[in-house]
Design a protein around this nucleic acid. Structure first.
Lengths: 216, 216
DNA sequence: ACCTGAACACCGTTCAAGT
DNA sequence: ACCTGAACACCGTTCAAGT
């Protein structure tokens, strides 16, 4: 054994298997991951600095898969809607990954560029510098929150009491996935309407017809 | 040693110390918690079923501390605003606790009753049964998302590139806490406006002046 | 350069033993 | 009833040893 002529591992193979593992519903860990890769846990450290880096690398890979491409000339509100929907799609494709991310600083440049594009679009739309980050935070908050909704257990509330308001509604409710879907649509609609109105109040001229000519 | 005449532990003492530990920024765990309590880790299992139950008990205690009390006759939109602000205040008081919660089913009755009140208020406001859970989900999503914003590291984005749009905005930006605050206010405003408009479209009569006479 | 295997400092949880 | 202490099955990470 020892060093094989052709390497058993690569960063890509590690990241792919890690994501597959998470999607399978297994709890993510380097020991279990090494097992799936048919390798000793310590071998991973030749390619990767540790557990945290693997998570961050997955985030980067997803940002790659769900690349944000905006055609020049697209109205700002369509850009915002597209970007939020795209992020939602990303989370929806790998719902169990999101919980691993909470509270971790973004370092992957591919993810950074995603926020870059969003910030650029908002600035071009006419949002003042002082507000762009706030709006980005609102959108990020919303995408994160509704993404977490997707990774939540099927039964969010465990209420045995069928006579309560909540209990009655839960009985006749459809599954959590479509509720989450509708809630996303509802929230997105509210936010977009709010942003349009807000921008209109700031610079009435630039609002609905304004087009974006170039991004970043 | 062995069994002392007066018990060293109680569920309350365990929960209090656990929350204090989380607020201190230490990573939560039963071994470390036992250490802080001056007790053997296995002793905790006489009072509590394990790590997960402690987390859920903390959630219940917080729901207790930040009890939702709505005066009968309060307009529905004020109820919604109050409830969302209250939840935000709860998360803000213990920002590091929230990440421990994601993806866990709510079982504590004190937390359930919180959602009960919200659902009851929305129904009385005139939202149709089929939509109440969706609206609750939107509000929950928003509260959760902006709560997580509070527990995020000070540097959410690590961008060395000061020439980029994001980099330039980050340099002149104030701290994350007040940005998070403004984003919360912005988002809440959008959602409330959206809900009012939405309700108005459904049942024009019941909207702004409607008052709630009793809750749950 | 890239793998193995032993080792370390941790986890959460169980259980017999003591009072 | 309520604590201790040993034990078990795990973690993530380091490092010397091998090719």
């Amino acid at each position: 054994m020892a060093r094989p002529k052709t390497p058993l591992l690569s960063v890509e193979r590690i990241v792919n298997e890690a994501l597959a593992m998470i999607d399978d519903g297994a709890d993510f860990g380097v020991v279990r991951l090494a097992e799936r890769l048919g390798v000793n846990p310590s071998s991973l450290y030749n390619h990767v600095s540790g557990r945290d880096e693997i998570v961050e690398l997955i985030r980067g890979r997803l940002a790659d898969d769900f690349e944000i491409v905006v055609e020049p000339g697209t109205p700002w509100d369509e850009v915002v809607e597209y970007v939020v929907r795209r992020q939602r799609a990303m989370f929806a494709a790998h719902p169990l990954f999101l919980p691993l991310l909470v509270g971790k600083t973004v370092t992957d440049p591919r993810v950074i560029s995603y926020y870059e594009d969003l910030a650029a679009a908002l600035r071009l739309a006419g949002f003042p510098d002082a507000e762009v980050l706030d709006v980005v935070a609102v959108l990020d908050t919303f995408a994160l929150g509704s993404g977490l909704d997707l990774s939540a257990p099927a039964e969010v509330w465990k209420t045995p009491d069928a006579t309560s308001v909540l209990g009655r509604l839960l009985v006749s409710a459809d599954d959590g996935a479509s509720r989450s879907e509708r809630a996303f649509e509802l929230g997105l609609r509210f936010i977009l309407a709010g942003l349009r109105e807000h921008l209109d109040a700031i610079s009435p001229a630039a609002s609905p017809a304004a087009a974006i000519t170039s991004l970043s």
